[in-house]
Amino acid sequence: PRKRHVPDQVSVAAETILADMTGRSVTWRRGTKGRLRARFCALRVRMADGPTQRIGAMGNQHLPGDEVWLVREERGSGERKYYLSNLPAEANLKQLAATIKARWICEQAHQQMKEELGLDHFEGRSWTGLHRHALMTMMAYAFLQSRRLAAVGRKKKNRLPAASALDAGDPAGHLGSPQSAASAAMPAL
């Protein structure tokens, strides 16, 4: 018996897999200039991140790994971005878009903690000291953020209705089976 598995199909680039999907306009939240929206489409794929094996004349190929969401975002400027997400298979397009876009909020919080609260000023020599410093910085940030929100009288926002379909070209909202045949090899992001 074989000691190593051999991939039976060649890896396919993310652009190729999502090229014929039309996408759907999704609004993930309100910003200072109105609703933030872009066109998204998503597909469950098996990412080619396993160990490499040779396939005859095709050279080294990766074995398929776990199932993930392959998401394409098309901005109003025409720019396209590709993402991988390990959200559950039951996730809808709005949840995928909101999770992807939550990264910006996290980056802003991290930047504020460094600039305003000194997260990057730690000069200790132990993990315990670093963890304590980070914890105290996060606690101070949470306190200040709660004070900022209370000062402007901000209430919890109403949630937008969830998106029902992941692709406008699929009116039933079904994604079909994961593309085990198309092991998505992600281009550099």
Rank of each mutant, 00 (worst) to 15 (best):
M21D: 14
F40S: 06
P88E: 03
Q61K: 03
G118V: 09
L144A: 10
S126P: 12
V71T: 04
V45L: 08
G78D: 05
L84P: 09
L84Y: 06
S85F: 06
A172Y: 02
T22R: 14
N60H: 12
T52C: 10
P64G: 07
G153P: 15
S146L: 09
T128A: 14
A89Q: 12
G23K: 07
D170R: 09
S177Q: 12
L166Q: 05
D8K: 13
L175A: 13
R37A: 11
P178A: 14
G56V: 06
A89Y: 03
L175M: 13
M113A: 04
P1F: 00
R2K: 13
G169R: 13
H62I: 01
E74Q: 15
M186F: 08
V152S: 14
K101M: 15
P171M: 06
Q145T: 14
M21W: 05
M47Q: 04
T27E: 09
A162P: 03
G65L: 07
R72Q: 15
R80G: 04
A184P: 02
S126M: 06
L175S: 10
L70Q: 03
M47K: 02
L144N: 12
L84F: 03
R24V: 07
K101T: 10
G124A: 07
R148A: 15
D49E: 13
D8P: 02
G124W: 00
K81W: 00
I17Y: 04
A98C: 11
E74M: 13
S85G: 10
Q9T: 15
I105G: 12
T16E: 08
A140Q: 08
P187H: 05
V71N: 08
G50E: 05
T52H: 05
Q111N: 10
D167Q: 12
Q95G: 04
S77G: 01
A38L: 03
S183A: 15
F40C: 09
N86W: 04
A172E: 13
M21C: 15
L96Y: 05
G23V: 06
V71P: 07
H62Y: 04
P1D: 08
A151F: 02
K33P: 07
A162I: 01
A134R: 08
R2Q: 11
A168H: 06
A182Y: 03
I100P: 06
T32P: 15
R147Q: 14
E67D: 10
F143K: 11
P64K: 05
E115K: 11
